[in-house]
Design a protein around this nucleic acid. Structure first.
Lengths: 109, 109
DNA sequence: TTAATATTTCCATTATTATGGAAATATGGA
DNA sequence: TCCATATTTCCATAATAATGGAAATATTAA
């Protein structure tokens, strides 16, 4: 659900976690590494990871005695699509799209 | 700030208000119309409008004895850009960009 | 200036979210 | 099996957010 995804990202620690996991890519990152990297106590991190999981923004897999968390790209893509269609008046808010394809380059010096 | 914008949109009533204002376009919509259209008590709506204003997602102008609220497209565009750059691993999560411009049409029947 | 209408502020209440230490629960290596 | 390590759950506490009626504050039209 869109509200759940927005709410999950609307918190400093969780946004930092998600960004970190996007950087980490498909390999993901163990909870302990995340905690150390961001300086978040393990119990707090666990709470935030659960929130992100409930919103389906991340998934997890056990690997040896670690639990690796991985960003779920497709939920993020779904959120972007929803926002574009419902909150940007149909036309994409993203400037990125326009120059890449239509190459009108309105800001060329 | 990105967190503020995400938090503002991460609430059912506020997301509905913002969508409505995007639909309404630059003319905007008076508080009373919004309240009636969405069935939200005026004091609650006022609270939510303030949240959206604080996040700079909407602006307002007085017109006769009504206050018209208008979606602020550029804050939304800023949010989309931030999410694309930080939460989509650089490449846009948006499928929309690809077919519109490159016209590969992978889902054509 | 008075009345009618639009919107906000005030306020009490309730609900939800965040925090982090301590204890509990895996998991795997020795 | 036993120990060390990784992570989660439990719990109490604190902080923040949401709700909506009633009163206060514009604004305008008559």
């Amino acid at each position: 659900m869109v509200i759940a995804a927005l709410a999950a990202l609307a918190q400093e620690s969780r946004l930092a976690v998600f960004k970190l996991l996007i950087e980490a890519g498909p390999a993901g990152m163990a909870a302990g590494q995340i905690a150390e990297r961001l300086g978040i106590p393990s119990s707090s991190l666990s709470f935030h990871l659960k929130e992100l999981s409930h919103a389906a923004l991340i998934t997890s897999r056990q690997q040896s005695r670690f639990i690796f968390y991985v960003a779920n790209y497709s939920t993020m893509a779904g959120l972007m699509t929803y926002l574009t269609e419902n909150c940007c008046g149909g036309n994409p808010c993203l400037p990125i799209c326009v120059p890449a394809c239509l190459a009108t380059e309105p800001h060329e010096s």
